[in-house]
Amino acid sequence: MRGIIAILTGGILLSACSVTRIVEPIPQGRQEVQFSLGGPLIHLFGTTIPTPLTSVAYNYGYRDNLTLSGGLNITSLAFGVIHLDLGATYGLWKDSLKSGYAGLSIRPSFYLTTDIYRWQTRFFPQFDIMGYYRINKHLVYGGIVNFFELKRTRAHNLTQPKIWFWNPTIGYQFESEKWRWQMELRWLAPDVRSDYRVPDYVQPFGKPNGTIGFYIGITRKINW
């Protein structure tokens, strides 16, 4: 039973955190479609796998420093949960630095989830802040993904133990003329114990706190 519940709940653990993200805003008027795969790492059936979450997103360069994006979690949809991710990436700062340039961006967003069985709807805000450094086709980035649970109580009127989930994140992007490939590692909920949970989460650094999320993304540039 543990394995399947691991998939079920692990698949949802912070899955609302978009699988991969826009770090550097795209130029004004440009559009792209992004496919992402990955999730929290769990021990399952004798091996370690990332929870296989998939999502598809559309990004639009509203201004040179502002990209609007909307995504749909496909894995959730397959199980009757409509899971939308709407947000905007805003470039706060960008400057030349040696052979490339560095920048800082924020991404306020929210997740809207509802199921097709009872139409129970939840709303989760998120706020990401990322620093990045680009050299030609390569971009490395790091920052914090912040996810918020607005409800104060959970089942049986128990107190929801955690409201703010902060998730240190690092990633790498490689860019070609038409495509962008992305890899991302995220330490999910490092200040929350993960060892007394039904899913058998991978616990990084030998500590029973949080778990590691691994994600990959492929983006197709449409009108670049």
């Binding site: 519940i5 609302a16 089942a155 039904v198």
Partner: peptide, 21 residues
């Protein structure tokens, strides 16, 4: 305790259990 708490405890969030089970 319940299927609902199992889901919420595993997911960390206050999710309706119908999302999962």
């Amino acid at each position: 305790a319940s299927a609902e708490l199992m889901v919420q405890d595993g997911a960390y969030f206050v999710l309706p259990k119908q999302y999962v089970t």
